[in-house]
Nucleic acid binder design. Structure first.
Lengths: 210, 210
DNA sequence: ATGCTAACGCGACAATCGTCGCTCTAGTCG
DNA sequence: CGACTAGAGCGACGATTGTCGCGTTAGCAT
């Protein structure tokens, strides 16, 4: 984690009066403690006190800066979201969507369930909700190139709504694994990807209806 | 609420030694208080103590029987889930899916956000999670007739996976409104429904790939 | 070097949460 | 009608949560 990374998502907007000082160190210690606690005790076993104790930072400081567990997770999320994540590029729309879905599937079924913990936190804290929203929005925006390439190859109509297609491909994973809590099914990513690719080829997800 | 409804979802499995007695009354009072509290103070402002005070039932009793807020919401959910909900029947697959999606959309965007509160609770309590799972599973099961009728009309292949089609139609709503937290878009239900119907007609969601 | 100030450490505090053992009451059954 | 018992009422308790004011310190500037 770069010492000057606090400005990553805020750029010039933040005052950030002392970028490289003690606050930064505290921040790093806390973020590390949050991640450690998350994987070790799970989301529900985690509390401000736990994190404070583990990080060696005082309770009151943690309360002041992050307010609640959701705020902590938001911080951790912003700190760890890789800025260099590349969308898959396999040469076909179905292949790209499959690769993408495999990643999503892996994230949602890994143990301990970090992704699920973050989603859960987003329901309890505005901070966490906004952080997660930023992350997803960023990822979906990057993935739009997948659709552009597909259009170039003739696998989708030129006026295909990229975001809608991407959501159609991935939403069944989130829905099944996170909300409906279906047992993990290894075929799910492929099926959802193929269904979406097929639908795109058939002319779905277009801006204007034919 | 019927006085003997506790057995609704449990049938013969529960001992239920005293079906019509004081316990039942307490249960009703508590469920009523839960619903009132939920709409009045929202999910996060709600606590065991609040509900106990409002219902006139003692704190300790509520703790004993329901353990936490999630348990309370699970109870309320089981108590209020209408057993006579009929899936839409408009005469076409796209129409049925649209009607279904309109219902989902309404539930997810209503104020106060009861549905979202229940989903949030499902991440914090196994009880609530299971109750919600039961409800969704029940609804999706009932909706399978929509696909059967569509197959009969030739709007989908006979080996179409009903559940998969239904999920494809509804998942974008949940994903967009609950997880991605996009602003409500009145066109969303129609688009998702039409995309799914179009995909089905094009041969997606089939058990065996051609 | 020396002063300035944002931020942290610290401990005390009230509020709330959840549990426990006991008593009492209201249904149920002989 | 009388005995039995599951379950509710009750209050006290320890643990945890979140807040506050005050003293201290570390980074920055001149």
């Amino acid at each position: 984690m770069e010492p000057d990374s606090p400005a990553t998502t805020k750029d010039a907007a933040t005052p950030a009066r002392r970028p490289g000082g003690r606050s930064s160190r505290v921040r790093e210690q806390v973020v590390a403690a949050v991640l450690a606690d998350l994987v070790e005790r799970g989301f529900d076993g985690m509390s401000i006190d736990t994190v404070a104790a583990r990080s060696g930072v005082h309770r009151a400081t943690v309360y002041r800066r992050w307010r609640d567990v959701g705020g902590l997770l938001a911080e951790a999320l912003d700190a760890t979201s890789a800025d260099d994540w590349p969308p898959p590029d396999t040469g076909s729309l179905a292949g790209d969507l499959l690769a993408l879905n495999d990643e999503v599937y892996a994230a949602l079924t890994e143990a301990p369930p970090v992704a699920r913990a973050l989603i859960a936190a987003s329901f309890r804290s505005g901070e966490a909700a906004r952080a997660l929203e930023r992350l997803w929005d960023d990822r979906y925006a990057r993935c739009e190139v997948i659709v552009a390439r597909a259009v170039g190859r003739g696998e989708a109509a030129p006026d295909t709504d990229a975001r809608r297609l991407l959501v159609a491909a991935t939403a069944p994973l989130y829905h099944g694994l996170v909300l409906l809590r279906n047992p993990p099914d290894p075929d799910l990513p492929a099926r959802a990807a193929e269904d979406a690719a097929l639908a795109a080829r058939a002319g779905a997800y277009r801006s204007k209806n034919a």
